[in-house]
Nucleic acid binder design. Structure first.
Length: 582
RNA sequence: GGCGGCGUAGCUCAGUCGGUUAGAGCGCUGCACUCAUAAUGCAGAGGUCGGUGGUUCGAGCCCACCCGCCGCUACCA
């Protein structure tokens, strides 16, 4: 990715589960890093395709639906709508943020499932499963509670006893009960189709070993798994999900495992996006192109699905059925997993009500301070804690004090004294040095973004901002102008050009304030525009709404700008609000 | 239990293949400036790099053990 040829970059952020509102711990992992990466590559001139959507099938959606006495579809609809609004308001620039309940997604999923079955990678096995006595649905191990057969702890979970730490089988629990409604689960034999993961181990291992540029946590974790692979069931005893395209698996009782279809979303959403644009074959430029690059973004809990299961599915699908049409599909080039965000010293947990919902934050604060915080203080290499006090402090003492203040003092000086970008005279050595410093920041910041080192990239951009603050303090145009207006014009011209360059440097991280600054600088075009919802129609009147944007009209160019002297400035206003300490 | 991670300045964290006086941001102290949302700039104080013992000419980085915290352990994502 270091040459100058435009590249096809697939940005693949994990699919948020449509079973409830998403909190900061979710978006810090998949949304914000992916968006920084996507926006950077767009600025650089690459062909970015960022696709994802809400993950709507599976047990968690059903559990929520059962609790509320509504259909799973109703839950999925509700949270698809709220999650895509959260993501729009955070400025996550998806080319297509769709959902897994589309006809397109079902078609692609079934093609892959059927092809894996025909190729012999899905094998039928029977296992003892737990079922809810009231609904007849599968009861995942975690939803069963009982007395631990080892230590006698009365609230052991089906998979593990929280008291003695032993791993359990729900069948062995004394007095088992469903945590959903308290009834005793039924255990009976059930057949499923298992993906033969061990059969791929010898191809996955060297592939993983070759990924030396991955974050160590992702690579090491995956390599540890690859030697102990067991076949994994890809069907479930539920009636909410994509029907199994194999005989003997009626949709009334059996559906495809939610994770099987969720990872396929990266492919099906690319196909949908192409169709929505009226170029139905264009997705192949990303998926069947040796020069393309695929980067996946997620929390660490999703690693196994992206480094083992999805690659195995792609290997098994090989040159494909209907979708592949004779050519293999591209494997992940990078899998970027974040660690976990804690709330103070507690783990975020949707089920225990510990967390800060994206919506709650965005109702009180602008998106860029939130993005700044999640990038600067996010759990990039180890778990980190969110606190409101830290959020306020980062906003006031870093974002506003350094970058916001630089913009404000520069624009205020220039606007008040000249009303436009003043024409420069001859440049002094310090003038050239600060311009060079800003220009020189693009290389490292870009490289760090490409390496998924977003924290360091943002710090690098901030230090470039510091350099310009230093320059202005040393040159003191407010003082110079009293005796030498021409020299003050030169200083402010240089400062404005620096700010204009920094604006681009900050755009991937802070798209909203960068666009606002773009306008204050007197530009009329779009650096980073609004995202939008579009309705998509499928067969028989089925409709859904996708989050997208018209990125083709956004300004390109990863480097210093060519700010024209004489360009009228607009009346300055602060980019960021000072927040009251909590 | 097994596997893995973490413990570096008051706070949050960087420290790539072990190599000169251990870094950053914020906070703190002093000075300067006063264009700017009291925001900026300069200077400075502050760490026996969790503990113990090893390997090495040399260890924050490697090894062993110990203490503390955490995650994963796959039909919950």
């Amino acid at each position: 990715m270091t040459d100058n040829q435009p590249k096809r970059i697939l940005v693949a952020p994990a699919w948020p589960y449509a079973s409830g509102p998403r909190h900061l711990g979710h978006v810090v992992g998949f949304a914000v890093p992916a968006d920084i990466f996507a926006r950077y590559h767009r600025l650089k001139g690459n062909d970015v395709l960022m696709v994802s959507g809400t993950d709507e099938h599976g047990t968690p959606t059903m559990v929520v639906a059962d609790k509320e006495g509504v259909s799973p579809r109703e839950i999925a609809d509700r949270y698809n709508a709220s999650i895509r609004e959260d993501l729009r308001d955070l400025g996550i620039s998806y080319d297509c943020f769709t959902r897994t309940t589309t006809q397109n997604h079902a078609r692609v999923t079934q093609d892959i499932f059927r092809t894996l079955y025909d190729n012999g990678w899905l094998i039928e096995q029977t296992a003892l499963g737990a079922f809810s006595a009231t609904t007849g649905n599968t009861l995942p191990d975690r939803y069963i509670e009982g007395t631990c057969p080892i230590c006698g702890y009365p609230q052991a979970r089906g998979d593990q006893c929280d008291n003695c730490g032993n791993q359990l089988d729900p069948v062995d629990l004394i007095n088992p009960r469903s945590i959903i409604d308290g009834t005793t689960p039924e255990f009976r034999e059930t057949k499923h189709l298992f993906l033969n993961l061990p059969a791929f181990a010898d191809r996955l291992r060297p592939w993983l070993e070759s990924k030396t540029h991955w974050r160590p946590n992702v690579r090491n974790f995956s390599l540890a798994l690859v030697d102990e692979l067991k076949p994994r069931a890809m069907t479930r005893d539920i009636d909410w999900g994509i029907p199994v395209p194999v005989e003997g698996y009626p949709p009334e009782t059996k559906r495809i495992y939610v994770w099987f279809d969720a990872v396929i979303g990266y492919l099906s959403a690319a196909i949908e996006c192409a169709a929505n644009r009226g170029e139905p074959k264009s997705w192949r430029e990303w998926w069947q192109n040796d020069d393309a690059h695929h980067s996946y973004f997620m929390g660490k809990d999703n690693i196994v699905f992206h480094t083992i299961i999805w690659p195995a599915m792609l290997l098994g699908y090989d040159i494909g059925g209907e979708i592949g049409a004779g050519k293999p599909l591209r494997q992940p080039d990078d899998v970027v997993a974040s660690e976990f965000l804690r709330l103070g010293d507690e783990q975020f947990s949707a089920s225990r009500g510990v967390g800060v919902n994206v919506r709650d934050v965005l109702e009180r604060y602008d998106p860029d301070p939130v993005r700044y915080y999640l990038t600067a203080a996010g759990p990039e290499t180890q778990d980190s804690s969110f606190t409101w006090a830290e959020f306020i402090r980062r906003n006031n003492d870093e974002l506003l004090a350094n970058w916001g203040n630089l913009v404000n003092r520069t624009l205020t000086n220039a606007y008040r004294n000249f009303g436009e970008v003043p024409a420069p005279g001859e440049l002094t050595e310090p003038d050239q040095a600060v311009l060079d410093a800003v220009a020189a920041a693009f290389g490292p910041v870009g490289r760090l973004i490409e390496q998924s080192r977003f924290k360091a990239a943002l710090a690098e951009a901030m230090s470039a901002s510091t350099a310009v603050n230093q320059y202005i303090s040393e040159q003191a145009p407010w003082s110079v102008i009293k005796a030498d207006r021409a020299r003050a014009a030169t200083i402010l011209n240089v400062a404005l050009r620096c700010v204009d360059g920094l604006k681009v440097l900050f755009t991937p991280f802070l798209p909203f304030s960068s666009q606002k600054l773009h306008e204050l600088m007197g530009y009329d075009d779009v650096l980073s525009g609004p995202l939008e919802f579009r309705e998509v129609e499928e067969e028989e009147g089925a409709r859904h709404t996708v989050l997208t944007g018209d990125y083709s009209g956004w300004r390109r160019g990863w480097g210093p700008t060519d700010l024209p002297a004489g360009q009228r400035l607009r009346e300055p206003e602060p980019l960021f609000k000072k927040l009251d300490p909590v």
